[in-house]
């Protein structure tokens, strides 16, 4: 058993009937690491995130996340894995407009028994933890039970972070979460994100094309170095 949270060996992926877009001989991420994964658009970043989150199935190779062998897992198990092990922060803040701020945050607990169990073992319930996360991410109490549509962009993105982190998933994937934020709020946002990752003891893989963010991370990888297939050779859909 590998000690690593993410363990990739000879991972190959291609869309059916097309030439492969990813061929990664080896890549490991240790628990607690915060990895900045840089890649130009079209370099296969989203595809790699899709593989890590179990949305796509590798063509061949070894893909282990948090002790679960993802290659070969089927639909329902992949869904369970994603619900239990992963927090996902999108490029655009994907909140449900008809739920309140706190309800958006606690939504993953509804779909994952593991997240609820983890909270329970810490003596917390979903709503209390959701409010704690929101406060920690500097959202004012007054908005907790209000609709998310009234929030600013920065606030919405912090709600999305709280949602990804609730129930302390071992791995958090972030797909260009700062692209809608200006430079000043970006640093502040990452600071808050890191603090809560620390508290949740979660690992972060942060994907972005923006090299200016690398200074915040202790580990930087470039997808171009990992992937044996040159970006120009592959076309991402």
């Amino acid at each position: 058993m590998s000690e690593n949270l993410v363990d990739i060996q000879n991972l190959r992926f291609g869309w059916p009937g097309q030439s492969p877009v990813l061929d990664i001989p080896a890549w490991q991420v240790a628990p607690g690491e915060r990895v900045f994964l840089q890649g130009a658009s079209g370099s296969g970043k989203s595809t790699l995130l899709g593989l890590l989150s179990g949305v796509h199935q590798p063509v061949s190779g070894h893909l282990m996340v948090d002790g679960v062998q993802l290659s070969g897992l089927k639909g329902a198990s992949l869904d369970r894995f994603r619900a239990d092990h992963l927090g996902y922060i999108f490029q655009s803040f994907n909140l449900l407009p008809y739920l309140s701020v706190v309800e958006n945050v606690t939504l993953p607990c509804h779909f994952s028994r593991a997240r609820r169990e983890r909270l329970k073992s810490l003596g917390l319930n979903a709503r209390r933890e959701g409010m704690r996360l929101l406060s920690a991410l500097k959202l004012p109490d007054s908005v907790f039970d209000r609709s998310v549509t009234g929030l600013s962009i920065g606030q919405q993105q912090r709600v999305a972070v709280a949602r990804a982190l609730i129930g302390r998933p071992p791995l958090v994937l972030a797909d260009e979460p700062t692209s809608a934020l200006d430079a000043a709020t970006r640093g502040r946002f990452l600071e808050l994100l890191f603090r809560e990752l620390e508290a949740a003891q979660s690992t972060l893989i942060f994907v972005s094309h923006d090299d200016g963010l690398r200074q915040f991370f202790d580990r930087h990888d470039s997808l171009a170095d990992l992937n044996r297939i040159h970006p120009e050779m592959a076309e991402e859909l």
């Binding site: 639909g75 869904d79 239990d84 999108f90 994907n94 939504l107 993953p108 779909f111």
Partner: peptide, 16 residues
Amino acid sequence: RRELAILRAVGARPLQ
């Protein structure tokens, strides 16, 4: 589709 994708991302299974 956006709403459904969000639900999927936070762990909803297709059956749900």
